[in-house]
Amino acid sequence: MKRDGPTALERFINGVLPENPVYRQLLGMCPTLAVTNGMKPAMTMAAATAFVLICANIIVSLIRGLLKPHLRILVFTLTIATFVTIADRFLAAYMYEMSKQLGPYVPLIIVNCLIISRCEICASKQSLGVAAADAVGMSLGFAAALASIATVREILGSGSWFGISVLPAAWPGWGIMVLPPGAFLTLVLLLGIAEWMSARRRRAPERQSETESECSLHGHAH
């Protein structure tokens, strides 16, 4: 088969940072904002999303030769919904407390655009290995993004991380960080930092070449 797109390694690396689903693509905002008030719910959501994304990418990649263009979204949704239901039932059976805490956000994984976009962009066009690597990379990127937001919110809001106390008991706990406004504030701040860092990295080579050319131009004048 001809090579028709990025390789498995490129897909994997892209998912983690350069095309991070939350910080670069702004996908999956609903779980990003809703379940990041603590590390435990955030990581459960990341694991459930990873399970669904990896399974959906694998199935879609396997049947990509049979897809009809106008029915492909239907097939993606059907596949995603199936694995979301499995994840939801599994949580209800083995992590009952967490399943109650996450409530409707587990079934809402179905409408997480991250998953359907990976089916569309990668899995429906590329081979099994590339699709699986893409799903794993994106899942790791998504998990890292959720972890970064949840870390800030849980430490500032509850003084703990994964439920373990990390700040002295005197820490008052900024209640707002646990509440929905804290999700928006944290996301905006971290998104701003991520943008600033990538803008600086983009500018750095330019500035370097500018300085060099200036030097060579005006070198003799001074």
Partner: peptide
Amino acid sequence: RDAWLVILLALVFGGGLAGVQSVLSDKI
């Protein structure tokens, strides 16, 4: 000819979910 894949997947996935439900329902 267009829809056979959707119908087949719906049947397979439906069967799979029924299996998952029957395994986990007692625990839930």
